[in-house]
């Protein structure tokens, strides 16, 4: 991806944070309104890919605190952990456990939310892993 566009560059600078915030917004509201971890992850991945097109795939790697591979591994572990948590309380795998009171900003927090966050991270990780590998060489 060589031909850099100034317009795209500037647009991405403003679009990307918005898209990322929007993706988190989708994740958080997912349980009650339209949204969810999967869609949120897709939007976030699209935001990063936009950045990759405007700048370069390598710069996306610099931007991310961890590699996409770590990201989706982490997501998978989070999802698994959310299912295992109830097992430690002698309940069947993947029983939904909830905090009694909703937290500010996050809303109701429970193992399904943890699961959804896992899905969110995993989707970002998987898509970036595939697309950035394709874009790199």
């Amino acid at each position: 991806m060589n031909g850099r566009s100034l317009l795209l560059n500037v647009a991405v600078r403003y679009l990307m944070p918005l898209l990322l915030i929007f993706s988190v917004f989708l994740l958080l509201r997912g349980h009650n309104e339209v949204g969810g971890g999967f869609v949120g992850g897709l939007v976030a991945a699209a935001a990063f890919m936009l950045y990759a097109i405007a700048h370069s795939p390598a710069e996306v790697h610099d931007l991310l605190p961890v590699s996409p591979r770590t990201l989706f591994t982490l997501g998978l572990f989070m999802a698994l952990l959310s299912g295992l948590l109830p097992v430690f309380g002698n309940q069947p795998f993947q029983t939904g456990l909830w905090l009694p009171e909703p937290l500010p900003v996050l809303g109701k927090v429970g193992t399904p939310f943890l699961f959804d966050t896992g899905v969110y991270l995993l989707v970002i990780g998987v898509i970036l892993h595939i697309l950035l590998t394709l874009a790199e060489d």
């Binding site: 997912g30 339209v34 971890g37 399904p112 959804d116």
Partner: peptide
């Protein structure tokens, strides 16, 4: 959860 689609998924 009110969003049935997402509740089914997660």
């Amino acid at each position: 959860g009110r969003n049935v689609v997402n509740v089914i998924l997660v």
